[in-house]
Nucleic acid binder design. Structure first.
Length: 382
DNA sequence: TCTGGGGTCCTAGGACCC
DNA sequence: TCTGGGGTCCTAGGACCC
């Protein structure tokens, strides 16, 4: 088995395909005059409103504009930028063409992660050439550019893509993991955000290398028996390597709105919740699955967010029941505090036979471990 | 500087039953 | 009177990703 492993052996690889400035690129396709100018897509396209940047073109990024940044900040950093509203149906159509192209690649198993990215599993002796053929095929079919990360696990492939951008390919495996990632902060890992990175730092684990050799008992004490070891594995780049094309089945649908002016009157709060509940029910009816649990999300001004949940006695499609439940969850929380945002989410009754997808969304936690062997048992030392 | 809207998953702890 | 251990269901709350 461990004999001469020739460079040309066909073995399984994980590729991560990520479109370059996807939303901006789609807009430039239908507005060619915007090519080369700073472009910001977000909200309703009005930078005086409460909304954030969905995507900034590379030209806008040179001014420091980033995804997730408030439009008000973006316009201050780049006053000459063109601002466009989000047009979800247009991006969904472009996304569908991209994913169909990926599914047409020989031997490819495609696991969609979002509008503009997917894992591609393939067994090949030359993953870089395969990645370049993906880039060419996507460009041919859609006029859109992408970058491809090549890895021996999902985490490595996902992170590799960033090093390939734009319009490139990058390989990240156990062989160069510590060379490339070892000195970077833990927040550079997929699945480690600001809170977890701070908690890791409080134990002296600042870098990916620190985390990779972290004391297991310390991680378990801090994060629990499941998440603790999971973070240790992330530090080593170890994760599932199984790409799964089972279609995703949604667990829940929700609607939330940030109000341009804070809500203060009980009447307007009740009306807002009724409106959100009505929109959620449209999604439920389209799906044909009733609501069994109601989630209420509230963001009070200036910026405190909280959630409440209640299971219903009987599953329902009735917007009145959902709205009444959501309002009930709000009582005792509000205390006359001004409300910036309200969200109503409905967890749906599982489909016939339950949820079958063996993978998880992949980012949240270690639950892919229950998918069994997918290469997640591999280990390396820093 | 001012922070969207769509999601998923994990942990802790209380209530309840056997 | 003082009191087990295990299991399941539920809610609260936190964290992350695109």
């Amino acid at each position: 088995m461990a004999s001469a492993s020739p460079a040309h052996a066909a073995v399984p690889w994980v590729l991560h395909v990520d479109m370059d400035q996807f939303i901006a690129a789609v807009e430039i396709l239908r507005h060619p005059e915007l090519a080369g100018v700073p472009l910001v897509v977000g909200g309703r396209g009005d930078p005086t409103e409460r909304a954030v940047v969905s995507t900034a073109s590379y030209e806008a990024r040179e001014f420091g504009v980033r995804s997730g940044m408030p439009l008000k900040v973006a316009v201050r950093r780049c006053p000459e930028a063109v601002f466009l509203p989000v047009d979800a149906p247009a991006y969904e159509a472009a996304s569908a063409r991209v994913m169909e192209t990926l599914r047409g690649m020989p031997g490819a198993v495609v696991e969609v992660l979002g509008w503009d990215e997917a894992f591609v599993g393939v067994t090949t002796s030359d993953p870089v050439a395969y990645a370049q053929s993906i880039r060419a095929a996507v460009l041919e079919a859609t006029d859109l550019h992408c970058s491809v990360g090549v890895g021996d696990t999902k985490v490595r492939a996902k992170i590799a893509t960033d090093f390939g951008k734009p319009r490139g390919v990058y390989v990240l495996t156990r062989d160069n993991w510590f060379e490339v990632m070892g000195d970077r902060p833990t927040i550079a890992l997929w699945g480690v955000g600001s809170k977890i990175s701070q908690r890791l730092a409080s134990h002296g684990y600042q870098t990916v290398r620190d985390l990779a050799s972290a004391d297991e008992a310390t991680l378990v004490a801090e994060f629990g028996p499941s998440m603790g070891p999971h973070y240790g594995r992330l530090g080593r780049g170890v994760s599932s390597a199984t790409v799964d094309d089972t279609p995703w089945i949604a667990r829940a649908h929700g609607r939330e709105t940030t109000y341009q002016t804070n809500l203060v009157e009980p009447d307007e709060v009740a009306e807002a919740i009724r409106s959100l509940a009505g929109q959620v029910v449209e999604d439920l009816r389209r799906e044909g699955r009733a609501c069994q649990r109601v989630f209420l999300k509230v963001r009070f001004a200036p910026f405190f967010t909280t959630n409440r949940v209640r299971k219903l006695g009987e599953p329902t499609f009735d917007p009145q029941v959902i709205a009444t439940t959501a309002l009930d969850l709000l009582t005792g929380l509000a205390d006359d505090r001004p409300i910036r945002l309200l969200g109503v989410r409905a967890e749906m009754v599982p489909p016939e036979g339950g949820y079958v997808d063996p993978r998880t969304s992949g980012r949240g936690g270690p639950s892919a471990r229950s998918a069994g062997t997918g290469g997640g048992t591999e280990d390396v030392t820093p």
